[in-house]
Amino acid sequence: MLKQNKLKIILSSILVLGTISFYIFSNKEETIHVLASADYPVTENLDEMAIESDLVVMGKYVKLDSKWNMARNPKDISQEDPENYVEGHIYTFKVDYVVKGNIQNKKMIEINHRYSETIDIEDGDGNVEKATNLDPLYIQPDLNAKYVVFLKYEPTQNHYYKAIEPFTVKINELDKVELQSNLLSSVNKAKKNEFKAGNKTFIIDNEIHKIQDNISGMSIEELKSKINQKK
């Protein structure tokens, strides 16, 4: 009788411990860490910004016009890519002055800013999570500020996009320029995107290149003159 009770206690203990272990194991917090890197043209040099640009204009961002998928089907670029999503934000920009290039008599142009991309991440259990990775270079344009922007023309979409990184310069109230870029050593912008799905935490770390600012502090006239020398 005593032996039977002992056996029951042992079996019950094993069952309880097993259940607890299973519960702990299945609810264990897990972190899945992804590192994203990209190759894009970068410069610390105003001359190179000007040389790389089809168009350099001074003016103001007016509004966010639309959002679209910059990833296109390679066989027919009028269609979206069914496998990739790269979100572009198209802004309307009012041109006050053309420093380089030609926009005929247009007063408004459209500029595309790369905003985010979707990354497929396997969670280790056979599920694929679609994670949004905000572009570490994206800076939301200030609709109240004056800018000089360095652009390339995209004929298939009839709009402009950044010629190189950096590509925007803000003009302050003293008519001095301030270079805009998340790559500047002085900018301490979070480049990590994190989200949770169930008991799993997904971290996407964006690896970026640091650059020096050799432009901020110039007067707008000095900036225009330097760009004109590179036309």
Binding site: S37, D39, Y40, A71, E83, V86, R114, I119, K152, I164
Partner: peptide
């Protein structure tokens, strides 16, 4: 991949 209106050349995800 085909990304239009972009100066991106390439990307790697590890």
């Amino acid at each position: 991949w085909y990304e239009v209106s972009s100066s991106y050349y390439g990307r790697n995800t590890s």
